[in-house]
């Protein structure tokens, strides 16, 4: 009974322990798990950097290379060329989101929830992506053409096209947040079960959560590339869009 009280009292949707520096409030659990995920990502990268060889690639190197290869292919297909910024951005997004999502698997009694279950992280990622996309669009098409793009196909639709651009970072952020956050809530609810029953649904749910983590990281990275691809071609004309963009509606609901 004591344990069930402890567990259930943790169910406070979206509550984060906080600390303040001056007038700034920080979510301490999100900061912790971000630092952990960041250290893991960078450590994996540095390990790989040291052992990277052209002769005998290890399994880790092959996994990295598969990711880089996929991102490169997608970028080339959507942007029509290789961009020296978009590829590392998409790779970093994928790896960082994946590791952040997988932090949930480690049983820490909800002390270290995945950082992606906090909108602070997902908004930040969405903002980075959309600013980069808009900068890329201006650079590719020139400021005049970029501004004119909002008036197409009809000037009367300008509010919609502008809104579309503004909504993009929010859809990116909230899709990721919602999926991972929901996984966390599910774990909390499973935690309400009697102690001898909790492992039964926890193990399959965590495995499922890992799969969700991969899919969400994949979607975030892919949509980022697609947004770059759309930015290079202009808004909503529909007649000259890259074929790859047609995949987008299928992925959106996931």
């Amino acid at each position: 009974m004591t344990q069930s009280v402890l567990v259930s009292s943790d169910i406070e949707i979206g509550h984060h322990p906080t600390f303040s520096i001056g007038s700034f409030t920080f979510n301490s659990d999100t900061v912790t798990s971000t630092v952990i995920a960041g250290i893991i990502v960078i450590a994996l990268g540095l390990m790989l950097r040291r052992s990277a060889s052209a002769e005998t690639p290890g399994k880790m190197q092959l996994a990295w290379e598969a990711l880089v290869d996929w991102v490169t292919t997608e970028v080339e297909a959507n942007l029509g060329k290789l961009n020296p910024f978009v590829i590392p951005l998409a790779v970093t997004l994928f790896v960082f989101i994946l590791i952040s999502n997988w932090v949930e698997v480690v049983p820490t009694e909800h002390k270290v929830p995945p950082a992606t279950a906090d909108t602070n992280l997902t908004y930040a990622l969405g903002l980075v992506v959309i600013i980069a996309v808009q900068v890329y669009a201006v650079r590719e098409r020139g400021l005049g053409d970029y501004a004119k793009g909002f008036l197409e196909p009809y000037p009367v639709m300008a509010p919609l096209t502008i809104l579309e651009e503004l909504i993009k970072p929010f859809t990116l952020a909230l899709r990721l947040f919602g999926n991972i956050f929901a996984g966390g809530i599910m774990l909390l609810i499973i935690g309400l079960l009697p102690a001898y029953l909790t492992p039964l649904p926890t193990v399959p749910w965590k495995l499922f959560g890992m799969a969700i983590g991969v899919i969400q990281a994949f979607i975030f990275a892919l949509l980022t590339i697609l947004y770059f691809g759309m930015a290079a071609q202009g808004h909503g004309g529909g007649h000259d869009e890259a074929p790859a963009k047609e995949h987008e509606p299928e992925l959106q609901p996931a």
Partner: peptide, 21 residues
């Protein structure tokens, strides 16, 4: 503490991601 409204953690995440990137 509305979980859909970001607080200063947002800035921390922005900087963290920038560093990782």
């Amino acid at each position: 503490n509305n979980f859909l409204v970001p607080n200063a953690t947002f800035l921390f995440e922005l900087v963290s991601f920038a560093i990782i990137l």
